[in-house]
């Protein structure tokens, strides 16, 4: 049924992504593909995998943005441009348009935990749900002809055959910088909810009216380049050197 659950779901399982921490290594992209190509539904195919025109289906992708403050084009004048790595997967929206547009009932939102999934045996591959998603979180698999999207690793998080530590999404488990967090955003006491409250976690494109479950934590204010300049000068200046370095300094001076 592609009508949305009528009540707010008791749980809102989702991700909290920390833009301050993500280093843009793409490890979660690979681990997501690795887990999901053998997991839920059809494999995530690649087209022309060893050729020049390689492309394929991914459920999670990392974009990188440059953010330039007003007047920041000139270094030191008004803050500097900064690079923000930006992981993006399905946000498991509460008002998910991708669910209501689906003509077949393949696309649905689970009433118990809010996870948005595609029942691939019903999907006709019309692509309308991908059109309706402003976030680009759905990709048609060209080999299987069905719609693929982030499953929130539903086959991990409830999987009792896995060790408890592994019962989180693959991307969360893999992230070497700990930029991705998984939890219940309906529970104000959960770790993810507290993080969102502390750091001012926000929604992407709230104007689209989709009410995403996933939240993004903003990059922390950065120390301006000029403030770090002192340590750069230190290399030329050995006045404060002590112990071994003072001895080395003296020896090198003598040579």
């Amino acid at each position: 049924m592609t009508s949305l659950p009528s009540l707010p779901t008791p749980k809102k399982l989702g991700l909290v992504i920390d833009l301050d921490v993500c280093v843009g290594c793409h490890a979660c992209v690979i681990s997501c593909k690795e887990w999901n190509t053998g997991g839920y539904g059809a494999a995530l195919s690649d087209q022309d995998p060893y050729g020049a025109e390689v492309s394929g289906t991914f459920l999670n992708r990392i974009h990188t943005f440059e953010v330039v403050p007003e007047g920041g084009q000139v270094i030191g004048e008004a803050g500097e441009a900064r690079i923000v790595h930006f992981p993006k997967s399905c946000l498991h929206c509460e008002d998910a348009p991708c669910v209501t547009v689906c003509p077949t009932g393949a696309s649905y939102k689970r009433a118990e935990d809010g996870i948005v999934l595609v029942d691939e045996s019903k999907c006709i591959g019309c692509g309308l749900c991908a059109w309706s998603c402003a976030y680009g979180a759905r990709e048609m698999d060209l080999a299987a002809g069905v719609m693929k999207k982030c499953t929130l690793c539903v086959d991990r998080v409830y999987n009792e055959t896995l060790k408890e530590i592994d019962r989180v999404p693959s991307c969360v488990r893999t992230c070497p910088a700990n930029a991705r967090h998984y939890g219940d955003l309906a529970d104000p006491g959960s770790e993810v909810s507290r993080m969102v409250a502390e750091r001012g976690g926000y929604d992407l494109m709230p104007e689209q009216g989709t009410r995403p479950t996933n939240k993004y934590l903003p990059p922390r204010p950065r120390k301006p380049l000029a403030a770090s300049a002192g340590s750069a000068v230190l290399a030329e200046n050995t006045d404060g050197a002590k112990g071994f370095f003072a001895w080395l300094d003296g020896m090198l001076d003598r040579i």
Binding site: V68, A81, Y202, D203, L204, M205, P206
Partner: peptide, 10 residues
């Protein structure tokens, strides 16, 4: 608005 980074800059 897509990234939520507008308060930092362009």
């Amino acid at each position: 608005s897509a990234t939520g980074l507008g308060n930092i800059g362009h």
